[in-house]
Design a protein around this nucleic acid. Structure first.
Length: 453
DNA sequence: GCATGATCATGC
DNA sequence: GCATGATCATGC
């Protein structure tokens, strides 16, 4: 049976083609299998070999690794990958003394055959249909970034920081947690601290772009950097060196250099786009979309302080009370988003472009202070204890954790006005309101200041 | 003066 | 119409 793992590339692709348009019931899916079951079913029922946990690729002769993964259609008609694509588990004790080309990652995943099926909410699993196949070979400029990502992960292991690895450390190739639960802890070579078991993975944002290229005829995204630029510099170095000529210039100077007359606040991101010589907005560039990088402008005042805290999307009260911290939107946001802080410093009444800083939230802060704020918020909502007092003018004071709560993260309104609301799961005790002004989590300005140093 | 609540502006 | 980035207004 396992001789089928010796198939040639052409034979494999031909067999894969026969799966297009078929659902999992066709392959005797009984609903008994676990989550990874679809991959296993395709291995056993379509390619007729026994699922294995070899360190080499599934098809050893053709050097192809088989993957089966879902995508979904969004309300606005676009498509997204439903998940990150999980590859092989990282053995911290072994991987650290490899180089990229001898790594377990490269040994197993040089060529991927990805079968995409369409996930539809409410549909039974057996009815999901395989709609597309992709023989994935690393595009040149992606490959340079993926090699850099691999080194970032490995360098963290070498520094004895495997327990601090986060998905947002890297751009396309990430180390995501994998295991039955968070208690699946593993040894690491240069620290006695146990680290969560992690696997190499392609980020969901990266997979989404693969799905879109495959399913729609839309133009490719506009890249900022070429593979040549990435060969001699890291991503961050390359971006920095493109911006360096403009450090120290005032907002007015930059606007005149780039012929920009807008007064809109978005002009900062627009200015950066011009400096990087791209036509689209920075946040729509290929690298920023695929790596899930969010640009944020920070203006430091003459006294060295920041005026405003940093806001995030408003949260849904009902959703928060029915979610655990581990599965919360907030944790997911900080675990998977890298930020590019664009820093302007005020001097003599004008803002000067000072520097940029790439940052993602350390897990130690995420699972301590941010978690603390989130849990407290959840508790307040579920107990109906939001409003503390109402002033004569009708201004409501709340019990939500404010900016003095823990110096990292707090809760404040984020709405068009006070009547811009979301429904409450439990009516507020003091006001009997069953909906409340939209609120969101904010990062404290002093914490931001600390980050940008 | 700063924390906190409320609101504005813009773009998709 | 709403999400998002950003700023204003009130009052302790």
């Amino acid at each position: 049976m396992d001789k089928n793992r010796e198939l040639t590339k052409e034979e494999i692709l031909k067999k894969a083609d026969t799966a297009i348009g078929k659902n999992f019931e066709y392959y005797n899916y009984s609903g008994q299998h676990n989550k990874g079951g679809f991959g296993q079913i395709i291995e056993e029922e379509l390619f007729e070999y026994k699922a294995n946990s070899d360190s080499g690729p599934d098809f050893s002769n053709a050097n192809i690794e088989l993957k089966v993964t879902p995508y979904k259609e969004n309300k606005n008609g676009t498509f997204s990958s439903k998940e990150r694509l999980v590859l092989n588990i990282i053995n911290y004790m072994k991987e650290h003394n490899k180089d990229f080309y001898t790594s377990s990652f490269w040994n197993k995943n040089q060529h991927l055959l990805i079968l995409f099926y369409k996930y539809v909410s409410g549909l039974k699993k057996k009815d999901f249909v395989i709609t597309h196949k992709l023989l994935y070979d690393y595009p040149e400029e992606d490959f340079e970034i993926i090699k850099q990502d691999w080194h970032i992960i490995i360098n963290k292991i070498r520094a004895g920081l495997a327990h601090e690895i986060s998905e947002a450390d890297t751009l396309y190739l990430a180390a995501c947690t994998k295991g039955v639960n968070s208690r699946s802890m593993r040894k690491q070579p240069f620290s006695s601290i146990l680290a969560k078991q992690r696997a190499y993975s392609f980020k969901q944002s990266y997979m989404t772009q693969l799905v879109r290229q495959l399913l729609s005829s839309k133009q490719e995204l506009e890249p900022i950097l070429t593979s040549e630029e990435l060969r001699t510099n890291t991503f961050e170095e390359a971006i920095n060196s493109k911006l360096t000529p403009y450090f120290g210039k005032s907002e007015a100077e930059l606007c005149s250099i780039f012929n920009l007359e807008t007064k809109a606040k978005s002009k900062y991101a627009l200015l950066i786009s011009r400096m990087l010589k791209i036509n689209n907005n920075l946040s729509h560039s290929k690298e920023f979309i695929m790596a899930n990088i969010t640009p944020k402008t920070i203006r430091v005042e003459e006294n060295g302080k920041i005026k405003e805290h940093m806001s995030f999307p408003a949260f849904n009260y009902k959703k928060i009370v029915s979610t655990s911290w581990i599965k919360s939107n907030l944790r997911n946001l900080f675990e998977t988003t890298k930020f590019m802080f664009i820093v302007f410093q005020k001097k003599d009444g004008e803002y000067y472009f000072e520097k940029i800083k790439f940052w993602n939230m350390p897990l130690s802060v995420l699972d301590n202070q941010v978690k603390e704020t989130w849990l407290r918020t959840k508790e307040i909502i579920s107990s109906g204890d939001i409003v503390k007092s109402v002033s004569a003018k009708g201004i409501r004071r709340t019990n939500f954790p404010g900016s003095r709560y823990n110096h990292v993260c707090h809760v404040r309104p984020h709405a068009i006005n006070s009547s811009d609301t979301y429904k409450l799961p439990v009516a507020d005790k003091k006001t009997n309101a069953n909906e409340y002004t939209k609120h969101c989590f904010w990062l404290d300005k002093d914490y931001i200041l600390e980050i940008i140093g």
